[in-house]
Each structure stands twice: as structure tokens, then as C-alpha cells.
Design a protein around this nucleic acid. Structure first.
Lengths: 179, 179
DNA sequence: ACCTGAACACCGTTCAAGT
DNA sequence: ACCTGAACACCGTTCAAGT
């Protein structure tokens, strides 16, 4: 006699995301997730391979949500930068996961598409990939440093973000940036 | 009767660093460190508060070593970028720790000094901090993405690094980058 | 077919007892 | 004064037994 399903894969991922943002990576235990979805820990293994896979799925969910936001943003680098930053603020713990080893690299490729499009509009198709990597690396590094509290030497962090964004765009506009 | 010391704080940190690079964060257990320094796990707590403090100390050691390398490098951003990248390649796991929550922020401040000096030479003292943050954010993000295998869309990664470096310097040279 | 209690291995940490 | 075995709490994971 089939037992009715008492939870689901999406419910588990959503619960894990909440717990991660509330209690950090150390608080993201199988027990905590199971309790939140109303099940016992061993039952999770019916839908998730193990804790690493669960974490990877959470990272993928965060990236996929970012992708949607990027696709609905303005198609210039400045708009994408603001959306990216807002997403990092909204899910700081999830953001940290995005570029971790077990992260879902395929979903990152999808998130990259709008960035490459905006870069292409600025520097042309030949340089678009290099330019997108410059922009993404800067934004990712900046947000990670900002979220981890690494900006401790004074100064206005918002202004530093604007400065970086404007300098990068200015540098890309220069033909000397070509390969 | 005092028992002779069978290990030391530096030996513990060095062992932890080796284990981290060999086996990753999950392999960095108190047991593994204790075994490597020739002691039992409980003895580690005489010199280290707990595992988090041990990890933070490892991160600090990696940052301090980077600081020495930066201080001995050429005092322009291109030289600093190469040194930074070489350090990330040499200690990829340690590099990941540098901007983690429990990371040693004070030691990061010391590593920032040579970068700010090089930035100041390029854009002047007033913009030096903003420019240093642009450069550091880009380099950090780029290396993190490179080490995590996030560059999957083809293209030459070394060329992308050069392109990013040259574009940033070109953008900083422009007066329009000023605040 | 899914869920659970029980069990196992492993880890971080504490502490009384050794020297 | 440092080191250790023993113990505890906690966690990830497996699995036979339930429905």
C-alpha cells in the first residue's frame, strides 16, 4: 500500500534555502531540513542523494533566480550590476555558494548569457566574452568582499561600487582594451 | 612535573595548511591535524580554541604569506596581479579561505597596503582606495571563478586575465573615473 | 512506495586522570 | 604543564521493518 508523499523535492530545497539564510552553512543540517518539511531525516534521502547534493541544489536555485532577474533587467552592464548586487544582498549565504566547488556550473552558464549580451553591445562580439568575464569577476569579488566585511579601510562602499562600475565601462570603451 | 611540549602552534598551523591543500576543507579534521603533528586530538585544544579558530589561523597564514610576496613585487598593478594569481595557484584551498566570514580581516588590511600604493601611483591619492577596491575585487573574483572551474564558455582564460587587467588600468587612467 | 526507528561511523569537544 | 583515554553530543547515512 503506497504511503502518501509527505514532502517534495521543491519543498526540501526551499526549506534548505531558508535555513541556510537564517542559520548559515553550519546550521544547514539534514535534521533541520527534515524537521522544517515535517519528515524524519532519513526520508530526505528518497529525494536527495546526500548533503552535498542538497547544497548544490540550493546553489542552483539561487543562480536560477538570479538568471530570471538578470533577464528582466535592463540590458546594459550598469543595470545588471545593480540587479546582481540586490540579489547578493537578498541571499548573502546563497550568494557565497554560487562559486563554490560543488556549485552548479551549468546553471552559471545560463546566468552569463545576459552579461555577455550587454558586454557585446559595448565592445563588440569579438571581445564580449573577455569583457563579460572582467565585469562578472569584478562584481562577484566586490560583493563577496562587501558581504564578508573585508572593506574596513574607510571610504564609502556604495561610491566604490559606482567608481568600479564606471571605470570598467570606461576601460571597455577604449579600443586599447582589445586583444 | 612538566611534560615536554610535543608540538607547537606554528607546527599545528603548518600541518593544517598542508592537509587543507591535500584533502580540502572536509579533510581538515582535528584528528588529521593531531596525527600529522604526532599528538592526540584533545591536545590541540591547548594551543587552538577550536576548529574555527584553526581555520582562521590558516587563512591568516595564507594572507600573511601573500602580503610578503606583494611587498616584494613590482609596485605596479600588473605585477601585483601576477603575484596574486601565482599565490592563488600555489594555495587554491587557502585562497578560498581568504574572504570567508571567519577570515582574518586585520591581516587583509596589511595585504591591501601595496595595492593601494600602486593604485595611488596610477590615479592619485584621492581615488586610490576606490581604485584599489576595483582592482582587488576583479582579481579576487577572477581567481575564484577560475579555480572553481566557472569559466566554461571557451576562450583563453590567460588572455581574459590580461584583457581584464589592461582594461582596468585603461579605465583608471581615464579622468572620467573620478568621483 | 514512502516513511521511520534503530544503528553505525565519524567528528568536535570536554575533562578527569596520568606523568 | 602538557598529554591522554574515555566519554558525550551531534551529525550524515544506511537499512530493515513498518504501513
Amino acid at each position: 500500500m503506497p504511503t502518501p508523499e509527505r514532502t517534495s523535492y521543491p519543498a526540501i530545497i526551499a526549506a534548505a534555502r531558508e535555513i541556510l539564510e537564517e542559520n548559515g552553512p553550519a546550521g544547514l543540517t539534514m535534521q533541520a531540513v527534515a524537521t522544517r518539511v515535517g519528515v524524519r531525516a532519513p526520508s530526505l534521502y528518497k529525494r536527495v542523494k546526500d548533503r552535498d547534493a542538497l547544497i548544490a541544489a540550493v546553489a542552483e536555485a539561487v543562480v536560477d533566480e538570479l538568471t530570471v532577474r538578470l533577464e528582466n533587467a535592463g540590458d546594459d552592464l550598469a543595470s545588471l550590476a545593480l540587479v546582481y548586487r540586490a540579489h547578493a544582498y537578498a541571499f548573502p549565504e546563497g550568494f557565497r555558494l554560487m562559486f563554490t566547488a560543488s556549485a552548479p556550473l551549468a546553471s552559471l552558464d545560463r546566468a552569463a548569457a545576459p552579461v555577455i549580451r550587454a558586454a557585446s553591445a559595448l565592445v563588440g562580439e569579438a571581445e564580449a566574452l573577455d569583457a563579460a568575464r572582467l565585469f562578472t569577476a569584478w562584481a562577484t569579488g566586490f560583493l563577496q568582499m562587501e558581504l564578508s566585511g573585508a572593506f574596513r579601510l574607510g571610504g564609502d562602499v556604495n561610491q566604490a561600487f559606482d567608481y568600479g562600475l564606471r571605470s570598467i565601462i570606461a576601460g571597455l570603451r577604449r579600443p586599447s582594451g582589445a586583444s
